[in-house]
Amino acid sequence: GQTTVQVRVPYRVVGLVVGPKGATIKRIQQQTHTYIVTPSRDKEPVFEVTGMPENVDRAREEIEMHI
Rank of each mutant, 00 (worst) to 15 (best):
G15W: 02
V17A: 07
F47G: 04
E54W: 11
I63K: 11
V18H: 07
Q31A: 10
G19K: 02
E64V: 04
T38G: 14
G51Y: 00
H33M: 10
A59S: 01
H33R: 11
S40H: 09
Q31M: 14
K43I: 05
I28L: 06
I63R: 05
L16G: 06
H66L: 15
I25E: 02
P20T: 07
T24K: 09
V49K: 03
Q2H: 14
K43M: 15
M65E: 13
E48C: 09
V5D: 00
Q30I: 02
F47N: 07
Q6C: 13
T24M: 02
T3W: 00
Y11T: 15
G22M: 10
E62M: 15
I25L: 11
Q2T: 12
K43H: 14
V13T: 14
T38M: 10
R58L: 09
P45T: 07
R58D: 03
A59L: 01
P53M: 08
T38H: 05
H33V: 06
P53R: 11
E48L: 13
E54Q: 09
D57W: 10
V49W: 00
Y35H: 15
E64N: 10
L16H: 13
V17D: 03
E44K: 03
T4L: 02
G51P: 02
V37M: 12
Y35G: 06
T3H: 10
L16P: 05
G19Y: 11
T50F: 05
P53Y: 00
I63E: 02
K21Y: 13
S40W: 10
T50C: 09
K21F: 14
E62V: 12
Q30S: 07
D42L: 10
M52W: 08
A59R: 02
R60T: 06
V5H: 01
Q2Y: 13
V13N: 11
Q29F: 01
I36N: 11
K26E: 09
R8C: 04
V13M: 14
P39F: 10
E44R: 03
G1S: 12
E62S: 08
L16I: 11
G22Q: 11
R8T: 11
E44Q: 09
V13R: 10
H66Q: 15
H33Y: 08
D42P: 00
T32G: 03
Y35A: 13
E61T: 13
V37G: 08
P39N: 10
D57Q: 12
E44A: 11
Q29I: 03
P10T: 05
E48T: 13
G15M: 07
Q30F: 02
E61Y: 11
Y35W: 12
H66K: 13
P53T: 08
R27M: 09
V46H: 05
I28C: 01
K43D: 15
Q29W: 04
E48R: 12
V7I: 14
F47V: 02
P45H: 07
M65L: 12
G19P: 01
E61P: 01
M52Q: 13
I25K: 02
I36Y: 03
G22R: 06
E54Y: 08
D57H: 07
R41L: 11
T32Q: 04
K26F: 02
Q31D: 14
Q30A: 14
Y11L: 13
P39M: 07
V49T: 04
R60I: 13
T32S: 09
Q2D: 11
I67C: 12
V49I: 15
V17R: 03
V56R: 02
I28P: 08
R58N: 08
E62A: 14
P10D: 08
N55L: 01
R60C: 13
E64I: 11
E44L: 05
V37Q: 12
P53S: 10
I67E: 10
I63A: 01
I63Q: 01
R12F: 12
G15P: 12
R60H: 08
S40L: 12
V46K: 09
N55Y: 01
P53V: 03
P10K: 06
V9F: 00
S40R: 13
V49D: 03
M65N: 14
E61N: 09
M65W: 11
V18D: 08
Y11Q: 15
T24G: 08
T34C: 08
D57C: 12
E44I: 00
G22E: 08
V13I: 08
G51R: 03
I25Y: 07
E48D: 06
M52Y: 11
P53K: 13
V5A: 09
V7H: 05
T4M: 03
Q29R: 06
E48Q: 11
G22L: 05
F47C: 08
V5L: 13
D57L: 13
H33G: 14
R12G: 15
K43T: 13
I67G: 14
D57G: 11
E62C: 14
E44G: 07
Q30D: 13
P53N: 09
T32Y: 02
V37T: 15
D57P: 04
Y11V: 11
I25M: 05
T24H: 10
G22K: 08
H33A: 11
S40V: 10
V37R: 15
I67A: 15
H66N: 06
V46F: 06
Y35C: 12
R41N: 13
G19T: 01
P45S: 08
V9K: 02
S40G: 14
Y11E: 15
V18S: 06
R58P: 00
A23E: 12
L16W: 12
G15Y: 03
M52F: 11
T3I: 15
R58F: 06
V13C: 13
E48F: 13
A59V: 03
Y35E: 13
F47Q: 04
I25A: 01
I25P: 04
Q29D: 09
R27F: 02
I63M: 02
R41H: 12
D42G: 14
D57F: 11
G22T: 04
R60L: 12
A23V: 07
Q29L: 01
A23M: 13
V56T: 10
V7R: 01
Q31W: 00
T3N: 04
V56Q: 07
I67D: 06
G19R: 03
P39R: 10
V17Y: 06
R58M: 08
V7T: 02
V17N: 01
E64M: 14
V14G: 03
D57E: 15
R41D: 14
T24D: 04
T38V: 11
V18F: 08
A59D: 00
P45E: 08
I36T: 01
G22V: 05
V17P: 02
H66M: 12
T32D: 05
T3M: 06
V18I: 14
E61L: 10
G15T: 03
E54V: 07
T3Q: 10
Y11K: 15
V56C: 14
R27A: 08
P10L: 03
M65H: 15
S40Q: 13
R58E: 05
G1A: 10
Y11A: 15
R12K: 14
E54N: 08
I67H: 12
V9R: 05
R27K: 15
R8H: 09
V18P: 02
P53D: 05
E64D: 13
R12S: 15
V5F: 09
K21T: 05
Q6V: 14
G22H: 02
